[in-house]
């Protein structure tokens, strides 16, 4: 991956707000320019250069972030275009409010992945988030459009209040999936024996549109790309919100 590389060099456990480091904002800037940018960190403000070792390269091409032992919140939050690859784990609100581009995380993600930033009414509005590990609670909350892929498990209230879009969790979900869901798809890579609260059993069949999703995800290496079936059990809901959303549990 060519482009700009940021390798964390601060103390382990340092909490950093990464929402200002987006490919479209950093495009065309030199490593020196970027190193001088302010960066919210551990309750104060420091500079990017203090926390990260920067390579030469244009963020417009791509951004590679190596978090090390840091806790990096809000990576890719609000991103509109470009590509961010994170080699490791990320904190909360990764890709929150994202409207375009690709955010790929090889490790685990915290809460509110692809969700809404505090105080904002909408979650992710476009683009693709791919997580190689697991993710925390409230993934894809209030999501409007786009795709969130998590190879492992996601926590409670997955796709909560989802408006549209697709969350695909290979390892399944914690309690209350699709709570308040209006439209959209929560796809799970494992069986769901009990009907989720607020949902109706829609039966099992092969879903043609999942072929389209799979074609669209070619090259991501995600669990769904590897899944050999498009057969899934459908649950329709949240009935309290009109019942136009769906949970699809692969069988």
């Amino acid at each position: 991956m060519s482009g700009l590389t940021l390798t964390f060099r601060g103390d382990a456990g340092t909490i950093v707000d990464m929402s200002s480091l987006l490919p479209d904002r950093l495009a065309g800037q030199t490593a020196e320019d970027i190193a001088g940018l302010p960066l919210p960190c551990g309750g104060g403000v420091t500079t990017v250069g203090e926390m990260f070792e920067l390579s030469t390269g244009d963020a417009a091409e791509a951004m590679l972030i190596r978090p090390g032992e840091a806790v990096l919140h809000r990576i890719g939050a609000g991103m509109a275009s470009g590509r961010i690859l994170v080699e490791g784990d990320v904190g909360s609100h990764a890709g929150a409010g994202m409207s375009g581009g690709l955010l790929r995380i090889t490790g685990n993600a915290g809460d509110a992945l692809g969700g809404a930033l505090p105080g904002l009414p909408l979650g992710m509005r476009g683009g693709l988030i791919s997580v190689g590990g697991s993710a925390g609670d409230r993934v894809a909350e209030r999501m409007r459009r786009g795709i969130v892929l998590v190879d492992g498990m996601v926590g409670v209230y997955a796709a909560g209040f989802m408006i549209a879009g697709t969350l695909a969790a290979g390892g399944g979900c914690g309690p209350h999936p699709g709570f308040g869901m209006r439209r959209g798809t929560l796809l799970m890579g494992r069986r769901q024996d009990a009907v989720p609260d607020g949902f109706a059993d829609g039966g099992t069949r092969d879903w043609l549109f999942l072929h389209l999703l799979r074609r669209g995800l070619e090259g991501t290496g995600s669990w769904f790309e590897r899944a050999g079936t498009t057969r899934a059990h459908r649950f329709i809901g949240d009935l309290a919100e009109g019942g136009h959303g769906e949970i699809l549990a692969m069988v």
């Binding site: 549209a164 439209r183 069949r205 879903w207 549109f209 389209l212 074609r215």
Partner: peptide, 25 residues
């Protein structure tokens, strides 16, 4: 009749219409 579903994958938008043999995509 209100049960149609829109899915956008990449730059392409598709419609899923419920029909008697499943869905018309």
């Amino acid at each position: 009749d209100g049960h149609q579903i829109s899915k956008k994958f990449g730059d392409r938008r598709f419609w899923r219409l419920p029909v008697m043999d499943g869905e018309f995509v």
